[in-house]
């Protein structure tokens, strides 16, 4: 089989899974609920490092009222 034909088959395979199967799975109740909650909270679960988060983590102000940071 020629390489371009094999490449076409790979592309079709990925397209079938990503454009067909995954959108179907995404509609399952528990998946839809998880995604809805993440979107509502502005969470980026795919962030590899803290600089990729939608909001940079900062020490919450309330924490110092509950925890002694430097005794």
């Amino acid at each position: 089989m020629r390489p371009c034909v094999r490449l076409l088959m790979v592309v079709i395979g990925f397209a079938a899974v990503w454009c067909g199967m995954l959108p179907m799975l995404r509609r399952l109740d528990f998946v839809a609920l998880h995604i809805e909650r993440m979107e509502a909270g502005g969470v980026n679960p795919a962030a590899m490092y803290y600089t990729e988060l939608d909001r940079l983590p900062v020490r919450p102000a309330w924490l110092e009222q509950r925890i002694v940071l430097w005794p």
Binding site: R37, M38, G41, A46, A47, Y50, E52, P57
Partner: peptide, 9 residues
């Protein structure tokens, strides 16, 4: 990191 934030949320 992203998974930590997601679980924490």
């Amino acid at each position: 990191t992203g998974a930590v934030v997601a679980a924490g949320e």
